[in-house]
């Protein structure tokens, strides 16, 4: 579905990603694990076309993404929930969710998409009329994922969905992510802590200093002491 081959990215002459290759198949949940600054967010931003590749290719559904503007990549069906409180504070929660049904028309009807987004995180429906600023960190995270979901994407990119959340809210977010995969979406998730990698993860890549140093099943990584030392949390 999504394939990165030997992707190099430089930001202001310093190499951030070196020959990064990874793959996400249909209905897969793939985790990109690495420490802060390892290049996880850079990888996701490169997929979204926000950073220019110095070398390598990125393909989505057989289509080369090189040179496409970000909004077109989103419209091809990649929903991106960035790190941090990525919501639009001046819009209400409802507007935050609905906006993507308008920017990417077609596919499933808008009400169905909004319903799916709310079904994934039911608590959001009760806040629909509130402004984005009145939400807690965890709720913002859910909103950010729900909004990406309302785009009706084939695939979701989640940047550290559990970062900074209180333990009380983590189960709700993980349940939401499980719901998303049940609905048939593929997920590529960046995570800094190996212990946050959800059970449903099918495969795992470990990134360190811009290079992929491990690719395999989650069970295998736990047996690799060298890798565990880096991402042991």
């Amino acid at each position: 579905m999504l394939t990165l081959r030997d992707v190099d990215v430089s930001i202001q002459a310093s190499e951030i990603l070196r020959r990064v290759s990874l793959e996400v198949g249909e209905r897969e949940v793939v985790c990109l694990v690495g420490r802060n600054g390892a290049g996880k967010t850079t990888t996701l931003r490169a997929i979204m076309g926000y950073l220019r590749l110095r070398a390598g290719t990125i393909e989505f559904l057989g289509r080369n993404l090189a040179g496409l503007p970000t909004h077109q990549i989103a419209n091809l069906g990649i929903g991106y929930a960035p790190e941090g409180s990525a919501i639009f504070p001046d819009l209400t929660v409802g507007e935050n969710v609905e906006i993507s049904t308008w920017t990417r028309p077609g596919g499933r009807p808008a009400p169905e998409r909004v319903d799916l987004a709310y079904a994934t995180f039911p608590v959001l429906r009760t806040y629909a009329r509130r402004k984005g600023t009145q939400m807690s960190g965890g709720e913002r995270k859910m909103l950010s994922i729900a909004r990406a979901l309302a785009l009706d994407p084939r695939m979701l990119l989640l940047d550290e969905p559990f970062e900074g959340l209180s333990p009380a809210i983590i189960p709700a977010v993980s349940r939401g992510i499980a719901t998303i995969t049940e609905a048939g979406h593929a997920i590529l998730m960046a995570e800094s802590n190996i212990h946050h990698v959800p059970e449903i993860a099918t495969r795992l890549y470990v990134i360190e200093r811009g290079e992929i140093i491990f690719a395999g099943r989650p069970a295998d990584v736990r047996r690799d002491p060298a890798v565990l030392r880096i991402i042991g949390g």
């Binding site: 979204m48 989103a74 960035p82 819009l91 906006i99 993507s100 920017t103 990406a148």
Partner: peptide, 23 residues
């Protein structure tokens, strides 16, 4: 919805692009 997109652009153009808005 057009106005909604404009406000999302004002709030954060990068994230508006992520949602498919041609800024």
């Amino acid at each position: 919805p057009f106005g909604l997109c404009l406000r999302s652009i004002r709030d954060n153009p990068e994230k508006a692009e992520y949602l498919g808005v041609s800024v």
